[in-house]
């Protein structure tokens, strides 16, 4: 079957299930909200201080939320051994990978967009008029997180202590994504000229491309026996 069709079917399946159960989206959004609330309690910040740390807070919250979403995307395949069905399916593993990445990016990005207004309110941010670069940052960082995260979720779902192992394996790998995302977000929120934080976006793009390609090939090893 043409790989694009496989990708479309996988995304369709994940999105339909998510729209019916709303398990992942609801738990991710709720979890992220709690993390943000706890941060806002633990730093009593004025607006200036907020600008210094808010980018870090955003990405800590998003990264941990991402762990939930990524873990769920494969643990949802466990009941009734659906993962085995995917592993036995005569389609290219790469297509399954890309389908899962696409679905994960969609979910994570949706939660991020949903939470952004909440952030603005909770931390009294000045909303910059041009949000397009901020959105690009969110998107690129989410793709990076999901590219590696999908591979590791597929890997950890088949071992013991998977809920613990996913963050332990994933977080050191995505250190560059976190650094670049925090720096770029800081720049975009402060309304800096794009030339100042543009290099971080380039780094994010490079990371996305390199690690998506690597994970794409390695996914075959994880799924096949």
């Amino acid at each position: 079957m043409a790989p694009f069709k496989t990708i479309r079917w996988i995304v369709w399946k994940d999105v339909v299930i998510e729209l019916r159960s709303r398990e992942t989206l609801a738990s991710m959004a709720f979890f992220a909200l709690i993390v943000l609330l706890i941060f806002s309690f633990s730093f009593s910040m004025d607006q200036r201080a907020a600008h210094e740390v808010i980018a870090g807070i955003i990405w800590v919250a998003f990264a941990f939320t991402g762990m939930i979403g990524l873990g769920k995307s494969f643990s949802a395949e466990l009941p009734h051994d659906c993962l085995d069905a995917l592993r036995m399916a005569p389609v290219s593993r790469g297509a399954i990978y890309l389908g899962k990445v696409a679905a994960n990016v969609a979910f994570l990005f949706a939660v991020e967009i949903l939470l952004f207004p909440m952030l603005v309110i909770l931390f009294n941010l000045d909303v910059v008029e041009d949000l397009s670069l901020l959105l690009v940052t969110f998107f690129l960082a989410t793709v990076g997180l999901a590219a590696v995260g999908t591979l590791f979720a597929a890997l950890t779902v088949q071992i013991r202590a998977r809920e613990v192992m996913l963050p332990i394996l994933l977080l050191p790998m995505v250190v560059p994504v976190m650094i670049a995302a925090v720096e770029a977000t800081k720049g975009a929120l402060n309304g800096d000229p794009p030339s100042l934080y543009g290099p971080w976006l380039e780094l994010l793009a490079i990371f996305d491309v390199v690690l998506t390609i690597a994970s794409f090939w390695l996914f075959d090893v994880v799924m096949d026996a």
């Binding site: 690690l211 390695l218 090893v221 994880v222």
Partner: peptide, 20 residues
């Protein structure tokens, strides 16, 4: 799985160093 992790980490390491 260990091989997968090692290879991905090897690809990742220059990026980590560069970004840090």
């Amino acid at each position: 799985y260990a091989a997968v992790l090692a290879i991905l980490g090897f690809v990742d390491l220059p990026i980590v160093h560069f970004s840090v």
